[in-house]
Simulated assay, not measured.
Amino acid sequence: MLDKTNQSTGYCPDPDCWTAVGEALDGLGLNPGDFSVKIVFRRCLSCGERNIVRDGDFTCALCDSALPTLWNFAPARSAFQPTSASAADRASRWVSGHSVEAVRSCR
């Protein structure tokens, strides 16, 4: 095994999950070390977007709201409702004003 990461397109695990991953890999006889790349994910409480926190900046890339400092993804997917119509409107305007590539790069 060359590289290990917590990068995910759905669950968005916190880097703290390494203990469980490491134990599972140890059980298979692998000596995995630690994650090669650790990614910090947060869900925006205003618009619901999944964010990758870069350089310690806990700001939503979609609506510029502050992101929680603690991991906030539920194990089971739950329905999300924006906290205000204006947050949903801002998110919609941002998406419509950007290319598919730009929107994808924010996830």
Rank of each mutant, 00 (worst) to 15 (best):
R90Y: 08
A88I: 01
A85S: 15
P82K: 00
S78M: 06
S36F: 13
T59A: 02
V21Y: 11
A102F: 10
C17T: 02
P82F: 02
S92F: 07
V37L: 05
G10N: 12
L67W: 05
P32T: 05
P13C: 08
A76K: 00
Q81N: 04
N6W: 04
D14H: 15
D34A: 15
L67Q: 12
S84F: 14
E23N: 07
G56A: 01
E101M: 11
K4H: 10
C63T: 01
P68H: 05
H98L: 02
S105R: 07
D14E: 12
P68E: 06
G48K: 01
W18I: 00
A79T: 02
E23F: 07
A76N: 05
A61N: 14
G56E: 00
A79E: 10
A66M: 03
P15K: 07
S96L: 10
V21D: 02
P13S: 10
R77C: 11
Q81M: 13
A91Y: 04
T59E: 08
G48R: 01
Q7V: 12
K38N: 10
A20Y: 01
E101W: 04
S84H: 13
S84M: 04
P32A: 10
D34Q: 15
K4D: 09
K38E: 11
S78W: 02
V103D: 12
M1L: 14
N6V: 03
P75E: 04
Q81K: 12
E101S: 10
N6D: 06
E23S: 06
L25G: 11
A20Q: 00
D14T: 09
C12H: 15
Q7K: 12
A24F: 09
D26L: 08
G33A: 13
A88F: 11
